[in-house]
Nucleic acid binder design. Structure first.
Lengths: 137, 137
DNA sequence: TGTAATCTCTATTAAATCGATAGGGTTAAT
DNA sequence: ATTAACCCTATCGATTTAATAGAGATTACA
């Protein structure tokens, strides 16, 4: 299941991208229009800023803005920051690999085999989707 | 993240399928060989039996056996029983659809759009994989 | 210069879920 | 009758998730 954090984060990024100009967008405006609890959204946008997707301006008329062009923001990167590993089990994760302690041999493990396929098909979607694709109205 | 329940369930099904004959396989044997807590595995196999994947024989020399041929057991069906909906959000689920209460218009929702693609690519894997595929050594 | 608006940061909490365990009850082979 | 196995319900501890609280720091602007 997709976490609310990821869902809200994607919606916020889309909202900002759709505005088009480079003016900062305020948390309150996003929260109101996308029906997201404002305090929760605050922490999510903070994460996205610290990860290099968003810039911010403090104080009056402050807000968040995109640092890169929407076409250059890949879903692989966004998803890894918001949701964590794309693989459903650590033993098939490209970026967060960990062996299973209960599995003596990955080569013959049926779960491993299946989850590699799921990982690859999901990666294929995320690698071919940018924020620009999400932002088409 | 894949739940342990699903992971253990898939491993158990594979174990039974790999044995080949139609003799009942005991919980204890599977638990030992696959390093699964026996009591936990009991409840999982019970679920799989009630869902029509496994049959059981009670009493001495009892155990679980496949009801259908491995080639006829699709991952779509197994995953829905063990893990639940394949879609990551209810608003793109084919079998468990529910609208988002915070989303006024699915047609323009970026999360909806992305998650439909992920669902379809994952479904494509599960629809084309059977227990027989998992059981190849 | 002061005030209001806005992002920043840490801490906390309530609820839900997950993984595992406990402890019998029921059934069938021998 | 005994034993080995599945059947069933209940519970528990740990973790994660979603949300909230509240104070701090910064900026625009009158």
């Amino acid at each position: 299941m997709l976490s609310k954090k990821t869902k809200y984060g994607l919606k916020a990024l889309t909202y900002i991208a759709r505005k088009g100009d480079n003016e900062p967008v305020q948390i309150g405006e996003i929260a109101k229009n996308e029906h997201i609890p404002q305090k929760f959204l605050e922490s999510i946008l903070l994460t996205l800023r610290k990860s290099g997707f968003l810039g911010s301006r403090k104080g009056k008329h402050g807000g968040y803005y995109l640092i890169k062009k929407p076409e250059d923001i890949l879903m692989t990167d966004v998803m890894r920051i918001l949701e964590g590993p794309i693989a459903l089990v650590p033993c098939v994760s490209l970026n967060f690999y960990e062996p299973c302690n209960d599995c003596p041999d990955e080569a013959t493990c049926s779960v491993n085999r299946l989850m590699i396929q799921v990982r690859d098909s999901t990666l294929n979607v995320f690698r071919n989707t940018t924020l620009a694709d999400l932002s088409v109205k």
